[in-house]
Simulated assay, not measured.
Amino acid sequence: MAVTVHTVGSQEIAVRVLPGELPQRGIVVQRGKSAASSIAVRWDGGSEERIRPSDQTVGYASDDTVCAQWLLDPGSVVEVFDSDPVHVFTEFIRDSRKITKMMLLRRVVVAGVSEGHAATSYAASRAALRADPHIQIRSDSHTWSDVPIDRYVGLRSLPPHEALDRLTGARGLRAPQRAALADAVRAGLPPRE
């Protein structure tokens, strides 16, 4: 079953980049329900085509984003990527809202970064991406949240006595975990005078 793409404001675009040719821009008009389903694209020339998700020459982005600019001007991302790959990965995650590692790397490659450089830089950037309060990484899936994610909300919501027990009895707690448990204990204390 296909899902027709309806957007408010910006549209999702597809950009095909072939060596030696100018990028071809189109509007995504329909996506399948699964990641394996083909994507219907209406190219700027008027023709429509169904694109396989495995097509390595096509990248996707919201029309009014820096990611779209990078896709439409292959190679423009390379200088930015060389100086700050975390920024480039973050922008593609923000634009996609949810993206797998494979798709993230593919979009960076379609934008003009070499495959090997993208993979190496991703490995070096993973810790910084994990530390970003707007990005949640689970396995190979990256999800963007406009609201910062509190990774320790479960610890902060513990009853004060349980938080105190964990705080005093656990070894090897990282500083953010200790801070979250301390917040839970403070929540159960009367205000300071």
Rank of each mutant, 00 (worst) to 15 (best):
P191W: 02
T100E: 02
V109Q: 13
R97W: 05
G32D: 12
G9R: 10
S83G: 01
I51T: 12
I13R: 05
G154Q: 02
E162T: 00
Y122F: 12
R171Q: 10
L104V: 07
S54A: 11
K98T: 06
A175C: 09
V28N: 05
P148K: 02
F92T: 06
A61V: 08
Y152Q: 05
A127S: 08
V41M: 06
V147T: 06
M1P: 11
A163N: 04
R94E: 03
T90H: 09
S62V: 11
L158E: 14
E49S: 09
L18D: 12
Y152G: 02
Q69S: 13
R16A: 02
D146A: 05
P176K: 12
E91D: 12
A35T: 13
R25Y: 07
D140C: 09
P176I: 05
R94K: 14
P85T: 04
Y152D: 03
E162P: 07
V153K: 12
T100W: 00
V8E: 10
H87W: 14
L155F: 07
D132T: 04
I13S: 04
G32E: 08
I93R: 03
S47G: 09
Q136V: 12
S114M: 06
G154W: 06
I135G: 03
E12A: 11
A131P: 01
V113Y: 00
K98W: 04
H142S: 01
R174G: 03
V66M: 15
Q30M: 15
S96M: 01
L22P: 05
D73K: 14
G154N: 10
V108E: 01
H6W: 08
L181M: 00
Q11V: 13
P23N: 01
